[in-house]
């Protein structure tokens, strides 16, 4: 079990215990809401499991440097930003990877674009986001996040 899972589960158990002492009926109600929501998003979550498997299976992080190593200029920012938006890499691996991208010749703007789109935009999560928050919100948030990430990267290129 990861530390994230431990924290989230700890909070849930703590919440349930406190809730149970404050009101049995409401606790049961909360569990019902939880169960219903769980089964509602389960298929979408399983779709993501398949997608993430394929993504990391076909584009392992070790190959990304080879693919996008020396990208620079506006085109570099765009392609590397798009890669970051689509790919799915845990941040513990992503930052060292961004460091080595920078070393192998990517510009500040391109490196920033990669990290920013990678963390801010989760294209693989899009089906779940649409399911839970609605198509309008999800598409707006992801689309504008991409623009914001590009703006952040270009500004970083200018400042640094």
């Amino acid at each position: 079990m990861s530390s994230t899972a431990a924290i989230v589960n700890g909070l849930a158990v703590l919440g349930l215990v406190v809730s149970f002492f404050k009101g049995k009926g409401k606790t049961v109600q909360a569990l019902k809401v939880a169960g219903k929501s769980f089964f509602k998003i389960l298929p979408m979550v399983l779709i993501i499991v398949v997608l993430v498997g394929l993504l990391l299976g076909f584009v392992p992080p070790s190959q990304i440097e080879k693919l996008f190593g020396a990208q620079s200029g506006l085109l570099g920012v765009l392609t590397i930003g798009a890669a970051g938006a689509i790919l799915h890499i845990p941040s513990l691996i992503a930052f060292p990877l961004a460091g080595s991208l920078r070393e192998s010749g990517a510009s500040v703007a391109a490196t920033a674009a990669f990290i920013t789109t990678l963390t801010m935009i989760g294209t693989v999560y899009l089906p779940v986001e649409i399911k839970i928050l609605g198509k309008k919100f999800a598409l707006l948030r992801n689309g504008l996040s991409f623009l914001a990430a590009l703006a952040i990267s270009l500004l970083m290129g200018l400042i640094l």
Partner: peptide, 18 residues
């Protein structure tokens, strides 16, 4: 997912009720 998702759903349920 199996470790995290049920707990998150419970937290959300508690949030909704309380």
């Amino acid at each position: 997912m199996a470790w995290i998702l049920p707990a998150v759903m419970i937290l959300m349920g508690l949030f909704k009720v309380w």
